[in-house]
Design a protein around this nucleic acid. Sequence first.
DNA 1: GGACAAAATTGAACGTCGTACAATTTTCTA
DNA 2: TAGAAAATTGTACGACGTTCAATTTTGTCC
Lengths: 233, 233
Amino acid sequence: MPAAPRSTPPTSHRTPAATPDPTQPSESPTGGADPDDRRSRKRRQTAEHLVRTAFALFAEHGYAQVTMEQIAAAADVAKGTLYNHFPVKEALVRARMHAELAEALPRLFAGLPPELGCAGRLRAFLHATAAYSEQARDYLPHYIAYRLGQPLDARGAENRSGLDRVYARLLADGQAHGEISADFPADLLADTLQFMHLGTLLRWLETPGLALADAFDAMLDLFLHGCATGGGR
Amino acid sequence: MPAAPRSTPPTSHRTPAATPDPTQPSESPTGGADPDDRRSRKRRQTAEHLVRTAFALFAEHGYAQVTMEQIAAAADVAKGTLYNHFPVKEALVRARMHAELAEALPRLFAGLPPELGCAGRLRAFLHATAAYSEQARDYLPHYIAYRLGQPLDARGAENRSGLDRVYARLLADGQAHGEISADFPADLLADTLQFMHLGTLLRWLETPGLALADAFDAMLDLFLHGCATGGGR
DNA sequence: GGACAAAATTGAACGTCGTACAATTTTCTA
DNA sequence: TAGAAAATTGTACGACGTTCAATTTTGTCC
């Protein structure tokens, strides 16, 4: 059985030849999962095992020093298997971060007080993520570079952080309440905000003294009100 | 700026052990060049030769199909020499784009009618770059991915497109005339605008029907005026 | 012009990444 | 229980990018 005839990847790039995507029913802001066969379960298990093994090595020797073969060997798995689950090294980082986000975002999102309005909820949400970003600082560059280096295809369900859904939800709410301008398509706003988020993270990573929460505040201010003055010129 | 403890590379990554960066005197919006020894001249010559050879091969066989060894062979140069000038393949793309921008930006910048104000000049400028981006579409993804994958050091004089300087200039002018809010630091605004520019390009690359000029208009609108309504909620 | 230092080039060897593929094993389905 | 689908294995391979010592070119100073 050489490889596969290809369809949509479940976790990374290997196909389970499953449903041809009948417009995913789950529309929660934190995304849906894949089937629950034993096969899928075992697949997730080995994937998680690989991620755990990899990050143990990363913590011990540093990300750059650890090779894919070392990871495979430490996980007691063939190199081909590792690449089956994670086509590139950065995909391991992505998997861990998305897993952590998938666990944290629902609580975070549910905990946002509706009375704050869209702007206030965005602000509270960003401040909450700031703490996480500071903790994951070492791996953020690799994650960001990998995410941004996927301009063409990507978009494949597993390549989304969950942040996009949160933003889309909050902004759509804001538009429904008249707090956010309906002149812009919701997806444009969500994409822009997510991109400004990444940009702010990059800036923060390069700027030693910068407090991330402050940077998020400025970003959000700019996103909401722009930088044009009423008068001038 | 706190990054490089070593001197600034002349073209790519090899250091000529020269001046310890005495705050570059040239502050034109289109950047300054390096010395004009015969050595530097020849270095530039071979670099240009390599870029020309590489792009000839790219045009013939496609970017991904061309290997670094093929480029070196076609340019009649050792592999080590090629890597001396361009440490990674994408650096060839960056070099060409920056060279083209260095040639085009001064004209473009000088041709912006001051009577348009900051917003109008930004708009005119972006529309002008749209034509160029459409022409360079094939290489944009590699360029963008390479640029964004340099979060830590980078910042090294040769890793800037020139766009940042144009933005900084226009926005500083806008702030001086009261057209742009002085609440935001100028460099934050320039960075944000440049990042939104990249984001818009990525979005455009992924969206078949999208007209780049329209996308720039929306982006600029959002940048200037934000997406918050006056009233609401 | 000649000597000497700095920089560029060369060529080859090396480690790693990521791919390809055929063989084997495990799991699902009927 | 048999056969299809999918995951795993192991190996081989092309390409990237690094390293390094030897050589050549270039600039500088006497």
